[in-house]
Design a protein around this nucleic acid. Structure first.
Lengths: 337, 337
DNA sequence: TTGAAAGCGATACCAA
DNA sequence: TTGGTATCGCTTTCAA
């Protein structure tokens, strides 16, 4: 919301004053009618006049003016992710938005591509959101959280492997995913386990804890395997597979798993006899390949749940900095392990 | 941005007046310094004082106040889609956002799930965006476009099979995709062609023109096939396949194509001998199945291109209601046809 | 039941 | 070079 340049209004935007003039009443009355003010009684004829005038002019209130006057907004800011999001996460986001709107919040997704934590926090703070839900798209520092709080944010919710001081943390511990995957593989007799680490930027926030989670499993020897989401990269990795001496792989998620499994099969390796493959996120497409892909299924919190948490944080003055464990992960065996 | 409730500020948010007080100057001077006003010369010591004070208080300007004063915003409103978006579209959106930010616009994605066209247009108009880019998430009427324009939107860009009066139309003609797919199949000797129509809500905007495009191809007999994005639905469709008497299918996109092809193979049918399968969107996963999936590749406009179009529409008073054909589609043969 | 007017925060004109 | 001040659109207290 910067200004600088000078696009002049072609036709002036109708204001409440215009409505008042047309209806032959005062601006106060217009406000009362249009906001269904309970505290004050307006005669039915007047109400109708005002509504008709507003209709006729196509009047729409100015959100900025309103929130300036009110001293606060009902904006919940949701940073947009920069990477394609799967159906799972997408459904969660939809539910969250829907629930928040039901609670009378305005959900604004703010694209923060290419912004640092500092820049992003400032840009967000300018909008004076009442809450910010940062699901890992940007890494927020304690200082950033402070900036947002100082700008009136009553809840700053972060989701990630580690809580940020001052923020309401939802410890969605991705390491649990890695732990489940590695445990599953170890239980099935595998020891030397590769863990795919996406080379794409911006995925460290998920890939690092998943790797660490796998590392934490006793009895497993973990080998990180950088790989990009391209057929070439997968083929290259598959080509040097025999030299790696691994008997299983946790491939970050189902998409990378499918890519790698395809390349391994094309290389003449047998799955799961020569190498067991497990993904994560339980995508539908994982069931379409043969052998069917084993996976780690993640239970996201319901959007409703998170929305209510936000709402509570907004209205309660007392800080609820409790940590909520909202993830549960479970390995599902299909045919690739 | 509604208000109603009453969350009282715990600590008051610092304003430019606070900065002025701390720096021992007037608010005007603060504004000049912080906005690097060219028209006015401020001494270096004063500048430093002001900057230090702003820093110390953690001052962040209030976007609402600023745009109220300015009489316009630099907000570009981008309705959020309600369905999971593929990597293709996701990359396009990222590029668009990035390009718009480079042009100094604030990109706000607005979730409009469950809102009618009228409700959505009103809600958007309250934010007084300078431009709206509706890529088909919500069907806008001419009246809705008028509402937005009256609220100061200088560009309303719609993308869909048909232009909306008053809006800048980007005729991204999805029917071309259907045409290419059916043509490809006909050229390879198929006549009786099924066209998968997703049962999921909100996809009509794409699925209908794709179906119609296929229908327009001479020499093809088209059979619409409703199907949901589940294994069960695909299996049910595959089970009654022999009774349909079809020798090819255009499966809406690669994801539905993969699902259906898997089910057809499991049913004992041979692809492409018994039935040819073609998808659309050229997703990477389409190459992982065997046989490899033929597809229709779509060229989306670059985000940069669209961003510049928006920028031009915003600064030019004259309406550019030219229609821009921004799609090109081409069939790619792999192994499934 | 309705109206007049103050004030939210930032900017830019006009004076000093 | 800096400061005072009117203004943007809206809500709400206080009076009438």
């Amino acid at each position: 919301m910067s200004q600088s340049s000078k696009p002049p209004q072609s036709a002036p935007v109708p204001t409440s004053a215009d409505v008042a003039r047309l209806a032959g009443v005062s601006r106060a009355t217009v406000s009362y009618v249009l906001n269904n003010a309970e505290a004050v009684r307006i005669s039915e004829p007047t109400r109708r006049k005002v509504r008709r005038a507003a209709e006729e002019l196509g009047y729409v209130p100015h959100a900025a003016a309103r929130s300036l006057r009110a001293g606060h907004t009902r904006i919940v800011l949701l940073p947009t992710s920069h990477v394609p999001i799967g159906p799972l996460y997408s459904a969660f986001l939809n539910e969250l938005q829907w629930s928040l709107r039901r609670l009378d919040y305005t959900v604004v997704q703010y694209g923060s591509l290419g912004l640092s934590g500092d820049e992003a926090a400032r840009a967000w703070a300018e909008l004076r959101p009442v809450a910010v839900i940062s699901l890992g798209e940007i890494t927020l520092s304690a200082h950033n959280v402070a900036t947002l709080k100082r700008a009136g944010a009553r809840a700053v919710i972060t989701m990630g492997p580690v809580g940020v001081p001052g923020a309401h943390a939802l410890v969605l511990d991705q390491s649990e995913v890695g732990t489940r995957a590695a445990t599953h593989l170890v239980e099935r007799g595998h020891r030397r386990i590769g863990v795919v680490v996406p080379e794409e930027e911006g995925m460290e926030l998920f890939s690092t804890p998943r790797l660490e989670g796998a590392r934490s499993v006793a009895g497993a020897v973990i080998e990180p395997l950088p790989m990009a989401y391209t057929e070439e990269s997968a083929a290259a990795l598959a080509a040097r597979w025999p030299s790696l001496g691994l008997d299983a792989v946790f491939a970050y998620n189902d998409e990378y798993a499918m890519l790698l499994m395809r390349a391994l099969l094309d290389e003449g390796l047998r799955v799961p006899e020569d190498v067991a493959v497990i993904g994560a996120d339980d995508l539908l497409i994982g069931r379409l390949l043969r052998p069917r892909l084993s996976t780690v299924q993640i239970e996201l919190p319901t959007g409703d749940h998170l929305a209510e948490l936000v709402d509570r944080a907004v209205r309660e003055p007392g800080e609820i900095t409790r940590r909520h464990d909202l993830i549960s992960a479970v390995a599902i065996r299909r045919e690739s392990t």
